[in-house]
Structure formats: structure tokens, C-alpha cells
């Protein structure tokens, strides 16, 4: 590991994993932490509970399709949802830079309240710190969330032949951020997909025996999440370029910017690994929830033990995990 923390240690790719393993796991060393995916799941008084936390440092604070407050609720709630939990309670911690405008703060907090109401979670505890001007860039928010596991869901061992489903168009959040960050004067409908996904998962309750794993492909995008799955289970994943849902606008602007949509963040999508027996039914169910772009994009393979894509032309291309930051501070 490097002697200094660099921005890439925070982008959700392989260097983030290195930091987590070598510093946090080593020091906090406990099974619940090390074996957890998006939330830690444990039993409290015979009830299985999911518990998670996330900090939000997105720049700019207001972006097309949302703001840091909406994201801070959706992001944490989604981590609970993909762990199979019904999200119940959130905490929030605010670190505010001296001089920050109160009306801006109010707008942000109001959208947190609106979003929680929509999802049915309550923000029940919080903390506020104000730091000297220049110590941070405007506002950072941390939220933690707690929920109850439903339908006795647990992640299962994935196997060769399992199908990979994505619930909609990829790279919407990352692209919207890139367009506003580079101040591109391009026309087109670029908007973050920032949204809560609990409703979709709830609709799949009768298929939980077939759903082996759920993930939300945020930082690092679809390719990075698939790499995590491949590494965790020591299996390969093959996806098909022609099956990946992406809007033409998004594809074109990324071509122009030299960004790869497979590595850009999503904030309202789920990747599911599903037993092939039920994959088509699960897909139909997801589509029935309004996710008409959802698709089966690939499958789990035994060898090679890596993630690759069959390209539109029929060639093969490796999708390594994110190696360096495309765009820092996107969530």
C-alpha cells in the first residue's frame, strides 16, 4: 500500500478494497465486518437485522436528478435493501463548513425528509458539526441505517450458469455528474438515476430462494461490482455487450469524454445473481415494476476466473476492476 492516501483510495475500485483490507479489516478484525457485503447482517433477539453506514461527499451538492440529501437517504436505504432488509431507521451526521447558506441546507434536509417519507423510513437520530471555513468543501453527510431482513433472505453460493440481471439503463448517475462537472454545453437529457430500490426488491419476495445475491452498482459501476462478485466466489462472469441497457445519449457523451459507462456509478439500479431456473420470471417481475429496460446481461462461468465481455463484433474484452479514478467525489 502507498505511504499516502490518494484520491483513488476512495473511488470504490481495487485501491479502495486494498485500503479497507489492510487498514480497517486488519484493525477492526471481526467476522461480521469481514463477511458483510453492503450491510452487516446479525441476529438481535432472534430477529435478523441489517446495519450499514455511508458518507456522502458528492460535488456538486445539487446535481441534475437530485442533491446530496436525497442521495444520502437513497444510498443507505439501498444498501439495506440489497441485503434483503426492509429499511426502518436512519441516523444522520452533518459536517458543515462555516459560511454555508442556511436556505441551501434547508433545501437539502427537506429533500431528505421527503425521500424518507416516500420510502417509509424514519430519521431518528443525528449529529451536527460546523468546521472552520476551508476545512471541508461545503457539506458532508453521513447516514447509517438499520432494517429487518425479510423472507429469511440470505446470500447464497453462486454457481456456473447463474444469470446476471441489471434492473435498468447503466451509467446515468456518473454521466450526469461528468456532464455537470466538465460544464459541457451538450444538449440531452442527463439526469442522475438516484432513487430508492426497495420497492423492486419487495416485489420479488416469492423468488428469494432463487435470488443468490443482490448488489447496487454505485462507485466503480457495473464492471467493478461484477469483479467483486467474481473474486468473492472465485468464479468468472461473462456478459454480452448487446444485452447491456444504455441510452444512446449516455453512450455518445461518454465516447466523447473518453469515459467507460461500465465503470460509471448508478444510484438506483440493482445487479442480481439469479438461479437460471427462475431468471426469466424474475426479469419479468422486475419489468412489471416499471423497469422496462431491465435485462439478463450475462452469466456466471467456471473459467476463466475473470470478468469479460463479448463485444458487439463478437470479440472478447476483459473488464478489470476499476484501476484509477474516472471522476472523484461522485457520491
Amino acid at each position: 500500500m502507498n505511504s499516502k492516501i490518494k484520491l483513488i483510495h476512495g473511488d470504490g475500485g481495487k485501491y479502495t478494497n486494498e485500503l479497507i483490507k489492510e487498514i480497517f479489516y486488519k484493525n477492526f478484525d471481526n467476522e461480521l465486518l469481514i463477511n458483510s457485503f453492503d450491510s452487516s447482517v446479525f441476529t438481535l433477539d432472534k430477529q435478523r437485522i441489517a446495519f450499514t453506514t455511508d458518507s456522502y461527499v458528492i460535488k456538486p451538492l445539487f446535481f441534475p436528478g437530485g442533491n446530496i440529501g436525497k442521495l444520502a437517504v437513497d444510498g443507505t436505504v439501498n444498501d439495506l435493501a440489497v441485503s434483503g432488509a426492509k429499511p426502518l431507521y436512519l441516523s444522520c451526521g452533518f459536517i458543515i463548513e462555516e459560511g454555508f447558506k442556511v436556505n441551501k441546507l434547508n433545501t437539502i434536509v427537506k429533500s431528505m425528509a421527503d425521500e424518507s417519507k416516500k420510502i417509509g423510513v424514519k430519521i431518528v437520530t443525528g449529529d451536527t458539526k460546523v468546521v472552520e471555513k476551508g476545512s471541508i468543501d461545503g457539506l458532508f453527510i453521513n447516514t447509517s441505517g438499520i432494517g429487518i431482513i425479510e423472507n429469511n433472505y440470505q446470500t447464497k453460493k453462486i454457481e456456473e450458469g447463474d444469470k446476471i440481471i441489471i434492473t435498468g439503463n447503466i451509467a446515468e448517475h456518473g454521466t450526469a455528474l461528468a456532464v455537470s462537472r466538465y460544464d459541457l454545453k451538450v444538449k440531452g437529457d442527463f439526469k442522475s438515476d438516484c432513487d430508492a430500490i426497495y420497492d423492486i426488491i419487495k416485489s420479488l419476495s416469492s423468488y428469494m430462494d432463487y435470488i443468490k445475491l443482490m448488489k447496487d452498482p454505485t462507485r466503480g459501476g457495473v464492471a467493478t461490482i461484477l469483479n467483486e462478485i467474481s473474486e468473492d466466489f472465485d468464479l468468472g462472469i461473462k456478459i454480452f455487450e448487446e444485452k447491456i441497457p444504455i441510452r444512446t445519449h449516455v453512450k455518445s457523451v461518454n465516447d466523447m469524454l473518453g469515459l467507460d459507462p461500465l465503470y460509471l456509478a448508478n444510484e438506483g439500479k440493482i445487479i442480481l445473481v439469479v438461479d437460471k431456473k427462475a431468471s426469466k420470471e424474475v426479469l419479468e417481475k422486475i419489468k412489471g415494476k416499471g423497469c422496462i429496460e431491465a435485462n439478463i446481461i450475462g452469466e456466471v462461468i467456471k473459467t476463466p476466473k475473470l470478468v469479460y465481455m463479448e463485444t458487439l463484433l463478437g470479440g472478447k474484452r476483459i473488464l478489470d476492476s476499476l484501476d484509477s479514478d474516472l471522476l472523484p467525489r461522485i457520491c
Binding site: 463485444t311 458487439l312 463484433l313 463478437g314 470479440g315 472478447k316 474484452r317
Partner: peptide, 8 residues
Amino acid sequence: SKYGISNL
């Protein structure tokens, strides 16, 4: 590289 043309 992106389309894997060299191995086609």
C-alpha cells in the same frame, strides 16, 4: 481493444 478486434 474495446471491441476485441485483434483476436477476431
